[in-house]
Each structure stands twice: as C-alpha cells, then as structure tokens.
Amino acid sequence: MASMTDRTAVLILGEVTKGRLSASTRELIGGGRDLADTLRSKLTLAVLGDDLKATGEEAIACGADVVLLAENPSLREYQADAYLQILERAVDHINPEILLMGHTSLGRDFAPRLAYRLKTGLSMDCVELSIDPGSGLLRMTRPVYGCKALSVMVCRTKPQMATARLGAMRPLDPDATRSGRVAAIDADIDRSLIRAQVIERVDPYEEGVALEDARVIVCGGRGMGSGESFGLLEELAQLLGGAVGASRPPCDSGWVPSTRQIGLTGKILRPDLYIAVAISGSSQHMAGCSDSRRIVAINKDPQANIFSVAHYGVVGDYREIVPPFMQRVKQILGVRERDDDT
C-alpha cells in the first residue's frame, strides 16, 4: 500500500490493452504529470488486471511517480461491480484531490458509478483540464450541445473527477531513467456483489487497417444510400492505405458495423487526412474528426455544414467524384491500372 506520507493529489485509473498501457492512459499520465507538478504533488496510476508484470516500469517511464497494481485473475476483463470494490477502497486510502480516467468504453461506463459511490462531481469527455490559479481547483472544459458550445466546470467535492477525450492531453516520451515506486494493492473481490455479468464478448475480427491506427480515414454518411456503396470507399481507403468509417446513420441502418462509427458517441479520431463522403457534417459527427490535420468534404449539397468545417471541398455526387479522384491518385502515386481486371 502507498504510504500516507506520499501525498498524491492526482490519481489516474489506467487501462492496459495487449500487455501495454493504452494510448488514452499514456496521454492521461502526460497531462496528469503537469497537473501534479502544478499542485507540487505525486502522480499515481492505478491499474487493474490479471497480469501486469510490465505495467509498473512502463508507467514510470511515461511519467507516473507511483504505480498501484491490483492483480487478480477475475480482473482480466472490466466488470463494473468488481472495479468499484477495488477503486472505492483505493480512493479512500489515497484520498486524492483529482481522479481522472479516459473517456473510453470503460470510462464511460465506470466513472458515473464511481462518482456516485464517492459522492463527488464528475465531468465527462473533457477536452481540456487545467488547475485554476486562483482556487487551485481543476478547471474541466467539455463540449456540450452536440459540440456547439464549450462548458467550463469546477467540482466542489473531492475527489474532482473527470474523463478525458482521446487527444485532449499529450503523452510524454518514455524515459527509462525516470524513477518511481510500484506497489500491489488489495485486489480481493466479493463475487456476490457482481450483479451484472458479462457472459460473452464478441469482437468481430476486421481485416485491414484499424481506424485508431489509420493516418487516412475515408468516412461515409447517410448520403451513401446503401451498405453496398461503401465498397467504393473501401477501394479508396485501400488505395490510400487507410481505413473506412461511417457517421451514425449508416451504422444505425445496419449498413456498417457500429464499431466503425465516428462521432461523439462513436470513435473520436485525429488522422492526417479525413475524407468525408456524403456526410452533412452534424456537430455530433464532427466531434469525432474535427481534430484531423486536414478534412476533405465531398457532398452534393453546397449548403451542407461539412463545407464550413472542411479544409478542402468538392461539390458533387460522390459517384461522379470518387472514381475519377481515385484514377488521378493512382497516376500520382504511380499505381499501374491492372488491365486484366476489366
């Protein structure tokens, strides 16, 4: 257990995927480091899982001072009622000023429950977190009204809780010479308190580049008209070495799996190039891509909102734009047309 002499003002709940800290956790440690330094305190990361041998060292290299590991075979996958037991105990013991987690699948589900148990306030999906110089409180900035507005909140109760959007904070370059302390914490779970049981996880295997890793994303909207028409976008994505996403309507219509949804309630990504095809550009969709380095819009409606947020646009029917665009890209990239295809 962390000794009480280490004052931890900032506690982060970390996540590990495939044995490594997730991108969101590395960002939180980077941003949390600044907050902890401002408050002249230690930065502590808590991670729950079943095999966390490499996690302590990795987290310290990324910027944490103290890493608390709760290891238990039952913690291999996230279960809210198991996590609650461990985090409630840990927060009680550490008594942090600030408690952060990623606005991930886990954070969205877990943060509200933990905040309720801790009788404290919570800001979800923050895009900026900083210490107010006057009050020393955490200023939590988050988009509201489908990203039409930004709100700034402070939390009057402790710990001040927030989830952070991917990309809101910067990870530090890992530095293996950094020092810190790794400790085990109580990982006992009373199984009788687990009320909702996950009995099966279905992660459909998808070929090609993962959306999260793609430098180029081709995204289709309602105007695509059908699931079949996404085949054209697949071709374009393949040509550019990218991945295909969709706004909400194609996912809700079953044209595209919901894991491909980009937007406020789907994935929030920041590729170098984002090509929005037949997308109107609602603010709820733009929340998922507005931080892309460059946005290209292809839409037949010149009044569509997408043209007020894109960097480049072509007005026209995508069926008449995408094929010649691909042809030109092939010329530029020196991709030879395969004659035997016709």
């Binding site: 404290t120 306030g121 919570l122 039409k148 507005a149 930004l150 909140m153 402070v154 939390c155 009057r156």
Partner: peptide
Amino acid sequence: PRCELLDLYI
C-alpha cells in the same frame, strides 16, 4: 450541487 458551471461559450 457537486459541480459549478463557470462558463458556457460558443
């Protein structure tokens, strides 16, 4: 109230 709204802007 657990949180306080400091600012709301476009």
